[in-house]
Write a protein that binds this DNA or RNA. Sequence first.
RNA 1: GCCGCCAUCGUCUAGCCCGGUCCAGGACGCCAGGUUUUCAUCCUGGAAAUCAGGGGUUCGAAUCCCCUUGGCGGUACCA
Length: 508
Amino acid sequence: MEKPRVRFAPSPTGYLHVGGLRTALYNYLFAKKNGGIFYLRIEDTDRKRYVEGSVEKLIHSLDWAGLKYDEGVYQTAEIKDDKIKVIGSPNYPGIIEVGNFGPYIQSERLDLYKKYAQELVEKGHAYYCFCEPERLEKLREEQTAQKQAPMYDRYCLRNLDQEEINKNLKSNCSHTIRLRVPRDERIEFEDMIRGKVSIDSNTIDDQVLMKSDGFPTYHLASVVDDHLMGTTHVIRGEEWLPSTPKHILLYRAFSWDVPEFAHLPLLLNPDKTKLSKRQGDVAVEDYVKNGYLKEAIINFVALLGWHPGEGETQEIFSLDELEKIFDIKKVHKAGAVFDLKKLDWINAQYIKKLSLEELLEKTRPFFEQKDFYIDATADKKTDEYLKKVLRIEHERLSKLSEVGESNKFFFQNILYDKNLLRWKEMADEDLESSLEKSRSVLENISDWNLDTLTRSLMEAAGDKKGDFLWPLRAALTGEQKSPSPMEVAWVLGKKESVKRIKEALGKI
RNA sequence: GCCGCCAUCGUCUAGCCCGGUCCAGGACGCCAGGUUUUCAUCCUGGAAAUCAGGGGUUCGAAUCCCCUUGGCGGUACCA
């Protein structure tokens, strides 16, 4: 395969969707695997749906995920080669466009679309339509009532002569340009994932190409851009499959080479409908906020709809590894349910790989949001202390956001419940002597580290471990469930541990 | 309604192209047991898919063909 050029072309309607992330990832991997170019284009042809700040968010999320693109839209970029064109976006302050196929923002390419739409009209592949939305609406209603597929009836194609069209145009009559879809033809193409796809041209509507506001629709804009920007492979979501024949018709009308297509299976809600906001988080930034690592999200999303194939049982893959083994032919056809449980597990795997320093760095923002942390005394906010907590929690964490949540006793005073201290049917005297013993053992430890603590306490416990360890643990934590007493004591330090034992003793 | 795509454990999936080695393998989750008290980690084991249903081809089908059903997507001057 010669050097492919692929793109990710989101619309700035708010944020990066996890489905979009996967589309971007597959494009990225395809480019990397085949030594090609991956570029980012912004498809902002619908002004009604534009959300302020989304372009920045899109760029930021892609950057966060580590999906570096070679051309397109950036906030900051390092340009080493002075042959590469760089412009500041006229429409988006602070955004720059880097690459020789720009502009990469569709709202900045309006003249281009207009020119190509006119070319289509001249060649007879498209025509002006002056129908008002009300007429179209009524037509659609009638057709639906008669159980027909709603389709434009070609009123303007059939009834308007050139003179009338010119007159309308001259008087600035609101109009669109529609694709003239040929009749009685079978449009076929070979999808890289699905194989041969075939559709009867009679079922294809005369799609609007240019809207009355002077903006192109997706169909025209993406075809023109994909051609002009040298796109060799169009890898996008399955929702585009039904409109691909229209795009093929467009390429043909222009006499342009048709790129290869790959339509990715959808990401699904647990009820198998298309993944939606209503049923959970869909924005990549939400997952970040919830304590997921980028490596985990990438890894998880890569495996939704793709698998390296026979004999491979590895489940944890880094981006580097994915770049080497990705094969678009192995992408599935069926949609995949987005299963949070598996994501959590993958996330836990990546958390375990983190060093204590890295873990501290990544969890600090989460600590700082927690009440128990905010209210804690200064000695419990030091890096040293936090690292001790983290050392204990490391293997218990499946999300960064859970940090400290189940071990708040590390940061705050606890409430003692006498009955919690008691192991099984223990008598008061035994409880008391057990805790006294703990106190003296701890007080006599001079070398306060986990090994010494473990050795001393296990030795003191003898063969009645429950009688000794349970009351100690309960006194230290005030909880039914917690890490072991040696771990807790180690984090808390001698002074605090002894203090808590004394307080527990006072309750008996 | 019309058009299109899809269909293996609850979920992600291997196997399907090149029929037998698959009374279907792995992972997540779940259950049980073990690992220096509880939790977590880790280890071991288990339940879990008549391969959507039916018909065909074949000595033999999860794998090839046809039909049915179901699900999803599209059907906009949204992408």
